[in-house]
């Protein structure tokens, strides 16, 4: 009997000490979320936020990135020089050109294609989806190489075909012609996006309740009317999502093709803002000028992104 009692007492003592260690453990628990987030925060801090701040600082300095040299503070010089550089002005024009030019490929044509092909059954749809998707997974360098070959001035398939069909009688140097170059880069970027966007719109469309269309048809709405009054409003979250993506990323998508196919030329006719940043930094070794452009456009894109975000919150209709 007393044995039992002793065990109970020692059990209780054990529990009391356990209690104390638990209290101590509790303060550790408070740290747990931060511990789990630490790798991500640390990496993004070191490789995104810290360098972004450095870029803001570099925008007011002059530096050639040569080891052993130090940046010199030059105030607003870089910004002034930017606006005196012809290629920079070109690049702004082209950035706007690419951003607006991509919209038919990322929104308008895909949406119409998705509507036109809506209601296709599963298996066939998957085959098409599989093919539409291929441009999206290919590397920019691969796409650049293939298009460069397709549009080769002397022996490319496009020139051969055009001549065979009698549309042109001489070789066209697509990538060294100021008019063709930027249109081609736009088409390539659009080619990469169009299938993907169609799939996104198709997916969004299949999620719309068929009842809406049936109700509208009963009300006597024509197909065209249905598109305007039901489809587009209900697709508005997807449209705004693709719009945001297009505006924020089109310059990054075009970057690779510009680099591989034209290097921004001829005469800066196909360059965009991100390519100029790269050129100032790594061709001209002018870190300050590149950073000034980066700072400027980070602010511009941030304002656009905030605006689009507000727009999405205000105008996107959701089907419950």
């Amino acid at each position: 009997m007393s044995e039992v009692k002793r065990i109970i007492v020692s059990e209780q003592e054990k529990k009391v000490t356990e209690q104390k260690s638990r209290r101590a453990a509790r303060s550790l628990i408070k740290w747990k979320p931060y511990l789990f987030l630490l790798p991500a925060i640390l990496l993004l801090g070191v490789w995104m936020y810290k360098p972004l701040l450095s870029t803001f600082v570099l925008a007011f300095q002059k530096w050639s990135m040569v080891p052993g040299t130090e940046p010199i503070t030059v105030g607003l010089d870089n910004f002034i020089r930017l606006f005196q550089t012809k290629d920079f002005i070109h690049s702004i024009e082209n950035t706007i050109f690419y951003t607006i030019g991509i919209l038919p490929f990322s929104i308008i044509i895909p949406m119409l294609l998705a509507v036109a092909t809506n209601g296709l059954n599963g298996r066939v749809k998957n085959v098409y989806r599989a093919m539409f998707f291929i441009p999206m997974i290919l590397a920019p360098v691969t796409v650049g190489a293939i298009w460069r070959w397709l549009f080769h001035p002397a022996n490319g398939l496009v020139n051969l075909t055009l001549q065979k069909l009698g549309i042109t009688d001489g070789n066209i140097s697509f990538f060294t012609d100021p008019v063709y170059a930027k249109w081609l880069i736009l088409f390539m970027t659009g080619w990469g996006l169009i299938g993907f966007s169609t799939i996104i719109f198709s997916a969004a469309l299949t999620n719309i309740n068929r009842d809406y269309f049936e109700a509208a048809a009963l009300d006597g709405a024509t197909k065209w009317k249905q598109l305007l009054t039901i489809t587009i409003p209900l697709l508005s979250p997807t449209i705004l999502f693709m719009l945001t993506m297009s505006i924020l990323f089109s310059s990054q998508f075009t970057f690779a093709y510009i680099d591989i196919l034209t290097a921004g030329g001829p005469f800066g006719s196909s360059t965009n803002i991100y390519y100029e940043m790269y050129k100032y930094g790594f061709n001209n070794l002018n870190a300050g000028l590149s950073s000034a452009a980066a700072t400027l456009f980070f602010i511009v894109f941030a304002i656009i992104a905030i605006g689009l975000n507000l727009l999405t919150k205000k105008f996107a209709f959701y089907d419950n």
């Binding site: 360098p51 972004l52 980066a294």
Partner: peptide, 8 residues
């Protein structure tokens, strides 16, 4: 964008 942090 990556171009904004590539130099640092």
């Amino acid at each position: 964008p990556f171009q904004a942090v590539m130099i640092p």
